[in-house]
Amino acid sequence: MSRTIVITGGTSGIGLALARHYAALGEQVVAVGSSEEGGRRLRAEVPRARFVRCDLSSLRETRDLVERLSADHPVIDALVLAAFRYNPRRVTTAEGFEHTFALYVLNRRLMAEGLRGPLEKAPSPVIVNLCGAGRGGRINWDDLQLENGYRAVAATMQGARASVLLGAAYGSERVKYVLYNPVFVATGLHEPFRQPLRGVVRAASALFGQPVARAVPPITALIDRPPAEPVSVWRKGKRIEPAVDRDEAQRFASTVLAMSAL
């Protein structure tokens, strides 16, 4: 019997490569992306995959997506959280959230919690959160939306730390939560930048970035054989042990829960 694999950010980069891999194995792949252009790319490269369009930075659209996926797929074997966009300048969503926080933090929390039911019905369920785990980062408790002095790196690093805290607080008896940092992968990191910086970032990706094809196998290994531990953190295929304060994790999870309810 085929598995159901849901991938956010599944129309480009690592997400698209994972969709291609699992579709070729005959699994039921649902790739979520924000644009019709991405959907056309997915249909051209992975015709067996199902494309679902959703603005994942929107809480309303994410809730609607969770309802649709739960209705269409009563059992989900794996949820891969790969949607991300690097914003050189501060961007605010229509709902008033800083975009990186909405996409990298709020969306991932809503997806993991909202699909808990279908995941827990699977034989060996797993959530794989592709993030910057193990790189440090801190939560800006006094300014979560980075309204004062936004810096793209700070927003990204806060999101990486948030993923670790939300993973630690997830607390499912059946669903394994994997935080995976693929490090520097040659995907579309250059796209948000303007020239000439865009060309510089593109060249750096080509020179120093890990090819997507090389980044995928360690991730599929964790999807196919989830770790025994409820929560585990990995960096480029190797297990790591980042410091996690349980009180901070619960505090942050409660804060994000209140924000997500808006």
Rank of each mutant, 00 (worst) to 15 (best):
T4E: 08
I7K: 14
T8D: 11
G9F: 01
G10R: 05
A17E: 04
A17Q: 05
L18W: 01
A24V: 09
A24E: 13
V32D: 14
S35F: 06
E36H: 10
G39W: 01
R40E: 14
R41A: 12
E45F: 04
R50P: 08
V52Q: 12
C54A: 15
L56V: 07
S58Y: 07
D64A: 14
L65G: 01
L65Q: 00
V66W: 00
D72E: 15
H73G: 04
I76G: 02
I76S: 01
A83G: 03
R85M: 15
V91W: 13
T100V: 10
A102L: 01
L106G: 02
M111S: 05
G114V: 00
A122P: 05
A122K: 03
P123I: 04
L130F: 07
G132W: 02
R135L: 13
G137Y: 04
G137C: 12
R138L: 12
W141E: 06
D143M: 07
D143I: 07
V153Q: 11
S163F: 00
L166C: 06
A169K: 02
K176Y: 09
V178N: 15
N181D: 01
G188W: 11
L189P: 09
G199D: 00
R202G: 00
S205V: 05
S205T: 13
G209A: 09
R214K: 13
V216E: 03
P217V: 04
P217T: 05
P218F: 01
P218H: 06
I219C: 09
A221W: 10
I223K: 13
D224R: 08
A228E: 15
E229Y: 07
S232Q: 12
W234N: 04
R235H: 02
K236R: 15
G237A: 06
E241Y: 04
P242Y: 01
D245G: 07
Q250F: 10
S254L: 00
T255N: 04
A258S: 13
A258V: 09
M259R: 04
